[in-house]
Design a protein around this nucleic acid. Structure first.
Lengths: 126, 126
DNA sequence: ACCTGCTGGTTCCTGTCGGAAACCTAGCCT
DNA sequence: AGGCTAGGTTTCCGACAGGAACCAGCAGGT
């Protein structure tokens, strides 16, 4: 009940920890999920995801691209068209993300209820 | 291939999106994982998790507590002892998180390799 | 009696990041 | 010629994360 192995996501020098930090981002999970059903255009994602700015979407997509999870296809048309698609590596993340979203769907109300019952301020140093 | 239902984690007003944003935090997943094997003390988590500050740990735990995922037990001893434990609701998150960490363990090297092959700068608006 | 230390938590200060909106490119349509 | 479209970048600013110091409360050493 007390041992964590060397592959556990602790002690920042293990690869698992890096990958956890990869997806532990405000928008990454949602963007990845948005790409889970096939190639999507930049503007489509903007409309699909509520509240993300173009800057953050571009930044998130670039990071995912650099990490090999997303591929970018720019067509030399006018007006410009750019499609983003999951790579095979990125597609392997869909299952975990689906579990997450399924959990969210199943337990979102319980979380909301707990928040409602416990409306204490959160930030200590703010 | 193009339809997202009303329960999908988009359009910020759905509960799934809120829950996704709950765990889409730099430390939340790691802290939750650290609690997955039973009650843990504050100081233990500090040592276990590399790089987290006391402030962020406290803040993360408070937020998880407010959301009903973690319970806090303070013992009136000297020196003080405080243990954190997953609630039943919080325990339901362990499975998705384990899938995430398993993915990380399996694909961390591939991500690192992609980063190495694609060392372009990421931040567009610095 | 005084000082130190253990442990959890909080406050101050600062650097960085996220978000909104404006600007840019480049070709078609009016 | 000027506006529209669509992706992307830049600027500016507020909020937040992080580090380190400080606080509380009592036990134990000297």
């Amino acid at each position: 009940m007390s041992g964590f192995g060397p592959g556990d996501p602790f002690l920042a020098d293990c690869p698992a920890r890096l990958a956890v930090e990869l997806i532990a981002d405000k928008w990454t999970v949602v963007v990845l999920y948005g790409l889970s059903k096939g190639p999507v255009r930049h503007g489509e994602l903007i409309g699909l995801i509520g509240g993300i700015s173009r800057k953050m979407l571009t930044q998130t997509l670039r990071r995912l691209e650099a990490h090999g999870l997303v591929s970018r296809h720019a067509y030399a048309e006018v007006p410009p068209r750019v499609e983003y698609e999951l790579t095979p590596l990125g597609a392997t993340l869909i299952d975990p993300i689906h579990m997450l979203t399924e959990w969210a769907r199943a337990n979102g109300d319980a979380v909301l209820a707990a928040l409602d019952a416990d409306p204490e301020p959160v930030a200590p140093g703010g």
